[in-house]
Design a protein around this nucleic acid. Structure first.
Length: 550
RNA sequence: GGCCCCGUGGUCAAGCGGUUAAGACACCGCCCUUUCACGGCGGUAACCCGAGUUCGAUCCUCGGCGGGGUCACCA
């Protein structure tokens, strides 16, 4: 078979041959050890936490080494393309601090290794495909779906590996004349790899994350270029990663099983392959078993979920980094103020086993992260969130912006600061009592205090209350009331002789707290009343008194 | 089912031939405390199983078992 002739027959319009592309995309001149990484999402709608997790690895790898991170859109499946998803992907990632140096951006393409959409790189793939045909590493296949299906059935009966390989790859034997004839008939065809893996020995490859990984050489004549002329992932990413001069391929572990194909395609071209880094999956617990988070079934996988709940991007980043490199947590303890970017992230410190996404842990992490964010920033984040997800209350929240700022700050500057704030929705619920709209006393009176008693306490309190009292004076009055009404001032006294008291001073304070906040628990009550102002606070207390009297 | 990956407390995980097997979250108890948070102290809790190598295996090898992934002209 004259492969040169065949190549010309299949790809007559290739004007720039493969070796010329080598010059068009020269080796990059970067500092020693600089990593070039890429994120290659398909524009199928939305991006999820798993993508972000993986993107974070690319990002750290590139930017920690003064390298380059590329956004390449892998849109070779025209059927699954969704309008507007490119923009969504870019915006979502940027929200979480993932910024690209090169590739597709909102302002168009950036960089000299483009185009960065695979659908626009047909000429390169065809040049590559043509070169492979010439070298006897690829051939056209005219098999139809039904034929392949039949083949598969036979193979399953005989319990051999399904697919086009070995003796089953009958079209390898097609003569030039036969091929010409089929093309003349206008039959659809795909380009297949002519695998040489049969009989080769198992070998090991060094994965950037996992270390040694066992590889059985590929034997499948995998489709390289589809009937529509666009490449499959297996072909496209190898060609692109080579010409974009990628050094590290970060991808999910689901790709481990097709790694042999990719390795053989590299071999066919005679290219060195980049370092493969297979990340483990994010898992979810269901019915006592762990399973891969699924974008269809698990709302917490969608980045939308975190947006709706109002998680701070910094908190997500922080948690993700802990998942990525668990020694990060220790580092963070020693460097509470240092930006995450200064941490020496290492791919070989990543775990090979999948991690269960733990909301509780995320919340704990988030509390500490928010401690390092100013109240001003938290407030503006909160207001933005409220505009979208709690529009009815957002109006009043804007009106009371100044007060809310103080409210959020209660107890934050202490040596042992409060950690009340986690995510926007939670913060909103946490401060909701402060708004007039929808305010009501929700919690019950303390167990030991009856309605009459409570009313009495409120009357006493209102009589002596002075807005200008400082915290100590304010509380001294509570104590006076408590003592006069027969409540213990010290917890210990009450514990020792419960029968001698109606309750403790905390019961008295709780009654006032209920009147002001509607809740049995809250941050420092004096501070709240102070921020609220005399008028609103006393009005609430009087109202509460009225309802108790009814 | 074949192949590949993974297997330390409920969860995330240090460990890389000899350790009282870290730490964090969660949980429980105590303390602090006007409530709630915060914080402090303490506690419950783990090397999947079986062989082999070795003076000695959580760690190395093999075999099971369990979980996950993958077997497309989707990525």
């Amino acid at each position: 078979m004259d492969t040169k002739q065949l190549a010309e027959l299949l790809y007559p319009s290739v004007s720039v041959p493969l070796d010329e592309w080598e010059e068009i995309f020269p080796q990059r001149s970067l500092p020693d050890g600089a990593a070039v990484t890429r994120l290659g999402p398909s524009p199928t709608g939305f991006i999820h936490l798993g993508n972000l997790y993986s993107a974070f690895v690319d990002e750290r790898l590139a930017h920690l080494s003064e390298g380059v991170m590329i956004l390449r859109i892998e849109d070779t499946d025209q059927k699954r393309k969704v309008e507007g998803s490119e923009e969504l992907i870019i915006r979502s990632l940027s929200h979480y601090g993932i910024h690209f140096d090169e590739g597709v951006t909102l302002e168009g393409e950036k960089g000299s290794y483009g185009p960065y959409r695979q659908s626009e790189r047909k000429n390169i793939y065809h040049a590559a495909g043509k070169a492979l045909v010439e070298r006897g590493w690829a051939y056209p296949s005219f098999m139809e779906e039904e034929e392949i299906e039949e083949l598969r059935k036979k193979q399953e009966e005989r319990k051999v590996l399904p697919g086009i390989h070995g003796e089953w790859a009958t079209e390898r034997a097609l003569t030039l004349e036969e091929i010409k004839e089929k093309l003349r008939e206008g039959k659809e065809w795909v380009l297949r790899l002519k695998s040489r893996g049969e009989g080769k020995e198992t070998f090991f490859i060094e994965d950037g994350i996992r270390g040694k990984v066992r590889v059985h050489p590929n034997i499948l004549d995998t489709v390289l270029i589809k009937a529509d002329g666009l490449p499959t992932y297996h072909f496209a990413h190898v060609v692109d990663d080579h010409f974009m001069r990628i050094t590290h391929i970060v991808r999910g572990e689901e790709w481990l099983s097709t790694l042999p194909i990719h390795l053989e395609v590299h071999e066919a071209f005679g290219w060195d392959s980049p370092v493969f880094c297979h990340t483990s999956h994010l898992l979810k617990m269901e019915d006592g078993n762990k399973r891969k988070l699924s974008k269809r079934k698990d709302p917490e996988l969608s980045l939308d979920f975190y947006h709706q709940e109002g998680y701070f991007p910094e908190a997500i980043r922080e948690y993700l980094m802990i998942l990525l490199n668990s020694d990060y947590e220790e580092w963070r303890r020693d460097h509470p103020q240092t930006p995450l970017e200064d941490f020496a992230f290492r791919i070989d410190h990543m775990s090979g086993s999948g991690a269960l996404f733990d909301m509780e842990k995320l919340h704990d992490v988030s509390k500490d992260v928010l401690l390092n964010i100013s109240e001003e920033e938290i407030l503006s984040f909160l207001l933005e969130w409220a505009d979208e997800y709690a529009p009815l209350d957002a109006v009043e929240m804007h009106e009371r912006e100044k007060e809310l700022l103080h409210l959020l700050a209660i107890g934050r500057d202490a040596k042992k600061p409060r950690k009340d704030l986690i995510y926007a929705k939670q913060i909103y619920e946490f401060i909701r009592y402060y708004l007039e709209r929808g305010f009501e006393v929700q919690d019950p009176l303390p167990e030991r205090v009856g309605k009459e008693e409570a009313a009495g306490i409120l009357e006493d309190f209102l009589q002596t209350y002075n807005y200008h009292d400082d915290n100590q004076e304010w509380f001294a009055k509570i104590r006076t009331i408590a003592e006069a009404r027969g409540f213990a001032l010290r917890m210990g006294d009450f514990k020792r002789n419960p029968e001698q008291y109606k309750g403790t001073v905390s019961d008295v304070a709780t009654v006032v707290r209920l009147g002001v906040t509607g809740l049995q628990s809250s941050p420092d009550l004096w501070s709240i009343m102070h921020i609220m102002g005399e008028e609103r606070a006393t009005k609430r207390l009087r109202q509460f008194l009225d309802t108790l009297r009814k």
